[in-house]
Design a protein around this nucleic acid. Structure first.
Lengths: 220, 220
DNA sequence: GGTCTGAATTGCCAATTGGCAACAAATGCT
DNA sequence: AGCATTTGTTGCCAATTGGCAATTCAGACC
């Protein structure tokens, strides 16, 4: 009852392992989602089974696209492992990285998913990633069948957006060095896994400035 | 059935007017809330009556505090008229203005209201304001009695936060002049009603820079 | 191991923005 | 109306950040 469908798992050398080990890993990954959701509301055994039976485990390689700009978004992912990046292009055609999603984050374009509108940006895997995928149909199924689903997801969405605006607020009114140090504090595991050019964009500075800031910090 | 309780209305020369005119104005203000909510979900006559009978109309003078930093927030307001400002202090003790709320916005500290935690900032009236006040008790009443309440407010909260992060994102990666022009475009009525020093803080620049930008624009 | 490609760094200089002091203008108060 | 306080502007200079070219570095691929 706890077995997720494994759609593609071509890179993690996972498929080569014995069946019982695979089952155990899948169990753990799916448990990660349930544990995360349970922080925000109670789920019954029935709810958990429904989730387990109607979600899909997907693997992404570096550079794989989760959401493509211009297309409607009809899925939500839960990041079991890895880092995704959301970016778009400004009026001058510069690529702007607006956030990262990693372990225990949901990955989707919230606006596009809820409003049935095309995504204005792209979500790309920055590392190898494992994602538990929820299609819109199953999302609506959960919404209907799981009593606490809406409340839980609403809470998570709110918290996520509030954390984001609070962090962005700092970026607006702080100097670049402080912003970088805040980034390290708030997202300590991201820095080793994505290009600095994307971190620089996220912080609203150039890669040159970021490079100088990092040098300055190591000198102190 | 459409009459709200008027708690204090001491500044708008409203109290001096004939009773039928007052009733009519109160009706219009309360209609403004219902119309706003109805954009995001259906409300029955019964729902509308419940709202009308369990909300309070309050007037704020310039400088009056809606939410005080350090205190828990147990109310939500709907701005019928006027501009509120949210600000907090950064580590260096600088006052940071992080957003404005005006007509048809809800005014509260979302984080504090939902999490039952003290507000980290203050919300102050920047102009004379008229607000439809919803206490936590009545909020919970609406949440229980009005079928679409949670869905409607969830949608509004999401939209508000998304608009905010999108605007902040521009502030992070644009030059100050573009940010100011974006501000004028997105919040055209705010600029005439609040001090430029607060606009500057909101945009993440000094009042000196804002002053120079404005001069530059008028010269062109 | 060698080559190739993109990422990251560095030096140099320019553009933007900040900080401060002085001043002007607007607002509030009596 | 007159004074005091706050808000906004300006000039001058400093600090921060950006832009570009050249170089170094690291990882991918044969």
């Amino acid at each position: 009852m706890f077995i997720l469908n494994v759609v593609s798992f071509y890179t993690l050398r996972f498929i080569d392992q014995p069946l019982d080990i695979r089952r155990n890993k899948i169990y753990k990954m799916q448990n990660q989602l349930v544990n995360h959701l349970s922080q925000f509301g109670k789920l019954s055994e029935k709810d958990i089974d429904l989730i387990a039976n109607n979600t899909t485990l997907i693997n992404f390689k570096i550079g794989d696209i989760f959401v493509e700009a211009g297309k409607n978004v009809n899925k939500v992912g839960f990041v079991v492992y890895g880092v995704f990046r959301y970016f778009f292009y400004d009026k001058e055609g510069n690529e702007i990285t607006s956030f990262f999603m990693s372990e225990n984050d949901f990955v989707t374009n919230v606006n596009s998913f809820y409003e049935y509108t095309p995504s204005s940006g792209t979500i790309v895997a920055e590392t190898e990633c494992v994602v538990i995928l929820i299609s819109r149909e199953n999302w609506e199924l959960f919404s209907k069948e799981i009593p606490n689903w809406n409340s839980i997801l609403q809470t998570i969405t709110n918290k996520t957006l509030l954390t984001k605006t609070n962090f962005q607020r700092k970026l607006i009114s702080q100097d670049a060095t402080t912003s970088y140090l805040d980034f390290l504090k708030q997202y300590p595991t991201i820095i080793q896994r994505v290009s600095l050019i994307h971190v620089a964009s996220f912080l609203g500075i150039t890669k040159f400035s970021l490079s100088r800031i990092r040098k300055q910090i190591t000198l102190e």
